[in-house]
Amino acid sequence: MTPLQYYLALAAALFAVGAWGVVARRNIILVVMCLELMLNAVNIALAAFSNYSAIGPGRGEVFVFIVLAVAAAEVAVGLAIGIAMYRLRERLDVDELDDLKG
């Protein structure tokens, strides 16, 4: 059996890659995609804990299902915002959305 820590390390790495993408790329659609990567990282950690934990078998998996549904909702709204933005400005640069600057 592969130790739990391996899975956690994988989750941490995937999370960091996602975070890097969110911060580094300018295209709003890619930012949404990277958010999905981060959610996947969390899902891996949850499923791993669920598999290795001595208490409450399957609880983590239930969580993953809920995360999946919320992620679907988030993608739908995020992409809708992207399309609306494109229609409004004809550009997808996240930095364009700075109307709230002080």
Binding site: M1, L4, Q5, L8, A9, A11, A12, A13, F15, A16, V17, A19, A45, A47, F49, S50, N51, Y52, S53, A54, I55, P57, G58, E61
Partner: peptide
């Protein structure tokens, strides 16, 4: 971030189950 997260997660003391728990 990856390194620190890995270290923090890896150092946790987990209560291991004897066999896979996912139902």
């Amino acid at each position: 971030l990856a390194a620190v997260l890995g270290v923090v997660l890896g150092r946790g003391r987990y209560n291991y189950a004897p066999r896979p728990q996912n139902p």
